[in-house]
């Protein structure tokens, strides 16, 4: 696959002196044609700023961006027809109906009338808004509004789609509907860049993921390779009655035979081990011997969040 977007040493700083914030600090990446590329990181990591520079809404302080061989700052209008944006904030007119919003954007993109109606029908049915098409957007639920926000970015049949945090605050049903539409896009020859701080979203949707923090890319690979990079085994998370001295307890658990890793994350003690079930009784006994009890316990496989914790020592939501 050839690169459809190339980013080199991209920088964007805000403020001056003591208040200088390096929002994006020398990011370089290649995005391949037809893939879903995930930018995963906590809030304020520089994902949206990077995206805004890629789409030309923000001027970089340094670095180069090439989209389909062209410079977005110089060939803006030509590239704008190729780019579809699904922004974090909603971008529709609440006092217009679903259909009027789509029709308005079709006019702005100068899409011929002959294909406008057909495309509106197709997009509306893809996100299940058929019965709501004549309804004012302000009367729709948050989830349905998000679905509309998604298809507004697709009305002009773009080649590259940039999704900036498409699902926060959505009910599970709407989230899955949005994910299904995004997942289907590469099959139609589209390339997708997805920024998110939901590790599950990045894991499920992305072909490759770049983990970003403090404006820098920490790692970039497929989700599978990233997860395996931190070691084998499953994870057990313990919620304890006694919240103090958790770090000390984790350090001691780390020395246990067969325990690959142990750490504290968001108030939980997490251990990783190859044969985790056989080691549980010893771990529980050790915890109780330290005057604490286990309130809750869950077993799961390694996630991208663990990769982030492993790289930064912090959880994504911290």
């Amino acid at each position: 696959m050839s690169n459809i977007i190339e980013v080199r040493e991209l920088k964007k700083y805000f403020g001056k002196g003591d208040k200088l914030v390096k929002a994006v600090d020398g990011i370089s990446l290649d995005i391949r044609e037809g893939e879903i590329f995930g930018l995963l990181g906590p809030n304020g990591a520089g994902k949206t700023t990077s995206l805004r520079m890629i789409i030309g809404l923000l001027k970089p302080d340094a670095g180069n961006i090439t989209i389909m061989g062209g410079d977005p700052l110089k060939n803006g209008n030509k590239l704008k027809r190729k780019l579809g944006i699904i922004p974090q904030s909603v971008t529709f007119y609440e006092d217009l109906t679903v259909e009027e919003n789509l029709s308005f954007l079709a006019k702005i993109y100068n899409i011929p009338r002959s294909i406008t109606n057909e495309r509106i029908d197709s997009l509306i049915s893809r996100v299940g808004l058929e019965k709501k098409r004549k309804q004012l957007v302000r009367t729709l639920s948050g989830g349905l509004q998000r679905r509309l926000n998604l298809i507004l970015g697709l009305i002009h049949d773009p080649t590259i789609i940039l999704c900036d945090e498409p699902t926060p605050g959505l009910d599970p049903q709407s989230r899955v509907a949005v994910w299904e539409v995004i997942k289907e896009l590469p099959n139609q020859g589209k390339t997708v860049i997805l920024t998110t701080h939901f590790m599950e979203e990045a894991d499920r949707l992305s072909d490759r993921v770049a983990i970003i923090d403090h404006g820098k890319i920490l790692v970039l690979d497929t989700p599978k390779k990233l997860k395996s990079s931190i070691g084998e085994g499953d994870l057990v998370e313990f919620t304890l009655t006694e919240k103090t001295n958790l770090e000390n307890l984790a350090q001691k658990l780390k020395t246990f035979e067969g325990i690959e890793d142990a750490y504290v994350s968001s108030g939980l003690i997490v251990i990783r081990s190859l044969d985790v079930v056989s080691r549980l009784s010893r771990v529980l006994g050790f915890i109780e011997s330290h005057g604490s009890k286990v309130e809750n316990m869950s077993i799961r496989s390694t996630s991208l969040e663990d990769v982030f914790i492993n790289l930064t020592g912090r959880a994504l939501r911290d």
């Binding site: 789409i55 809404l57 507004l152």
Partner: peptide, 14 residues
Amino acid sequence: PTNRTFDRIRLTPS
């Protein structure tokens, strides 16, 4: 800030 329709227009060739 909560409904950036103008950004949407800026991102069109219009």
